[in-house]
Every structure is written in C-alpha cells, then in structure tokens.
C-alpha cells in the first residue's frame, strides 16, 4: 500500500518550466514517477519535457486527472501556489520551496482547514515510495523498497537515515520529509499516524530537531496507540540556546523543546532513541529483529 504517493499517483509540477522545476521533474520522470504535466502561468499550451504545460492547476486537473502536486515556486508566490492546488482539488500537495514568510503560512493553514487535501512541507525534500513514485528532490538511488516508514523534519538527515536503513538490509515503505518550517502542513504526528495505519510499514523512524513540540506530541500518541517499533533521533543536542540554526523551526525556546528533553520523553514513551545519528539504521535493524525473533 505505502502512503501518500504510489505508482498510481498522477503528479503535476507547479513551477514546471523554471530551473528547479525542470531539473527535478526530469529526475522524477527518470525515477519512474508518473508526471502528467505542469503549470507555469502564461505558458499554457506549450510542451515541456514531453508533457503538457497549463496556465492554471484547475486546467491541469481537468485535463490530466492529476491528484498530486509538487511545488517549486519562489517563496513570494508559493503560498498562492499551495492554495491554488487545494482549490483545484489536488489531494496531496508537496511544497519544496524554502523561505515562505510565516504570515503567508498562517493564511495557508487557515485556508486548508477542512479541505480534503494534505500539504507536505513547505521547506521539505518531498515524499518517496521506492520503486513507485519519487515526488521530491531526494536522490532516488539510495532508496530500496521495504517496510520501514521514515518521517523527518530535515532533508539530508533523511537521506542519511534512508541510506543506513538500506545498508542495514532493510528498505523503506515511504519516506516523508515534513520540512523544517515553524508551520508545517503535516506534523510529525500526522505522518506517524499514516505510517502506523499502513499495512506495508512494519517499523518507523522518526527524525526530529530541537524546537517546537511535534516530536513529544507524536511520542505520547505512540505510547498510547503505537503498534510498531519506532526508532527516534533528535538533531541539535549541541545547538546553543536561542540561536537560529538554518531551519526557522529549530530555535530552542521553552523547556520541553531541547534535544535532551525530547529524547527523554521519547524514551519514556517506549521509542528506541539513537544517541548518535550514526546508529539509526543499526537500531532499527535490532528493533525489527526482536519483532521477528
């Protein structure tokens, strides 16, 4: 089954003809993702990468039956692009764009409330279901089809976890990069719930960062409802208080949002916590061996 995207997903690219859109759409097509077209306002009617270009998401949906969109629109226009996709009935909206103003995202969150769609990101690497669909900017070749679901706030750290899982002889059901922004469309808990319900997923890796309470919320839910082994890691143990570390979301503020506090709560909730990011794959393998053994 996997979650969010699979071989039946019909994917459109917003910001299709731009540099980023072109590069990553090409990579996605090479991976085997079913990219059915793209949007660049003003370029409707043209062909790009052998696929139709539309002026609006609505036209693209009507003519291709698209149900997943990936957004490479510059930050100033990205909030509008997300809302356009939601309005056109796209079910899964994946926004790669980094640097969207918080005020814009507050509006987006409000706009999406109650609409039958899910936003992943912004400021994220996207979602991949190995051998079926890569809707994101991650390197496809490190992935291997399998049964470990991964949810992460960071891009390259997700790749790291994927690589370790693959090298440990396991594979991934779906890897979800939820992004590092203060207002994510999908929270860690939302993603954990999806993976917990997914039949294909047998174990879960949850990678978080300092700042916010998403991981502790997820940990408490897992304690009450979890049915699969979960390995967790929180980046930023050595980050100094009050300094911004690249991701707007990663500012240490209150008490429960330091790496230590989060790891402690996660442990109390029965999550296997990796102290070092080099041990994530190994710990997942050990946890899975126990389940089988």
């Amino acid at each position: 089954m996997s979650v969010l995207v699979n071989k039946n997903s019909r994917v459109i690219v917003q910001g299709f003809t731009g540099t980023e859109g072109t590069f990553h759409a090409t990579q996605m097509i090479e991976y085997g993702t079913n990219v059915v077209g793209g949007i660049t306002p003003g370029k409707g009617g043209q062909k790009h990468l052998d696929r139709p270009v539309f002026d609006t998401v609505e036209q693209a949906v009507n003519s291709t039956g698209a149900d997943v969109s990936i957004i490479f629109v510059p930050p100033a226009f990205a909030a509008d692009a997300i809302m356009e996709a939601a309005d056109a009935g796209i079910k899964v909206i994946i926004c790669i764009t980094e640097g969207i103003p918080v005020r814009d995202m507050i509006g987006v969150k409000e706009f999406l409330r109650g609409k039958p769609c899910r936003l992943i990101g912004p400021n994220c690497p996207g979602v991949i279901t190995p051998d079926e669909a890569k809707v994101g900017i991650m390197p496809g070749f490190i992935h291997k089809k399998g049964h470990i679901g991964i949810v992460s706030r960071s891009g390259t750290l997700t790749y790291e976890a994927v690589d370790q899982v693959t090298k440990a002889g396991l594979g991934q059901s779906t890897a979800i990069g939820i992004g590092g922004d203060p207002i994510p469309g999908t929270s860690t808990l939302d993603a954990i719930k999806l993976l917990m319900e997914d039949k294909e997923t047998e174990g879960i890796i949850m990678i978080g960062e300092i700042g916010g309470t998403m991981e502790t919320e997820a940990a408490r839910w897992i304690k009450a409802n979890g049915t699969k082994p979960v390995v967790g890691f929180i980046a930023g143990k050595t980050a100094p208080k009050g300094r911004k570390m690249g991701h707007a979301g990663a500012i240490i503020g209150g008490k429960e949002d330091t790496a230590e506090a989060k790891m402690k709560i996660m442990k109390e909730c029965g999550i296997h916590v990796a102290e070092s990011p080099a041990e994530i794959g190994k710990m997942m393998k050990e946890a899975m061996d126990k389940v089988v053994g």
């Binding site: 992460s152 706030r153 960071s154 891009g155 390259t156 750290l157 997700t158 790749y159 790291e160 590092g180 990678i207 960062e209 300092i210 890691f233 980046a235 930023g236 143990k237 050595t238 980050a239 570390m245 690249g246 991701h247 990663a250 790496a259 070092s276 990011p277």
Partner: peptide, 9 residues
C-alpha cells in the same frame, strides 16, 4: 541544516 546539527552532535 538537520544533517549539520546531527554532525555537530
């Protein structure tokens, strides 16, 4: 950024 923080760790 995430991998950078993990590397610091």
């Amino acid at each position: 950024a995430g991998l950078a923080m993990a590397t610091m760790d």
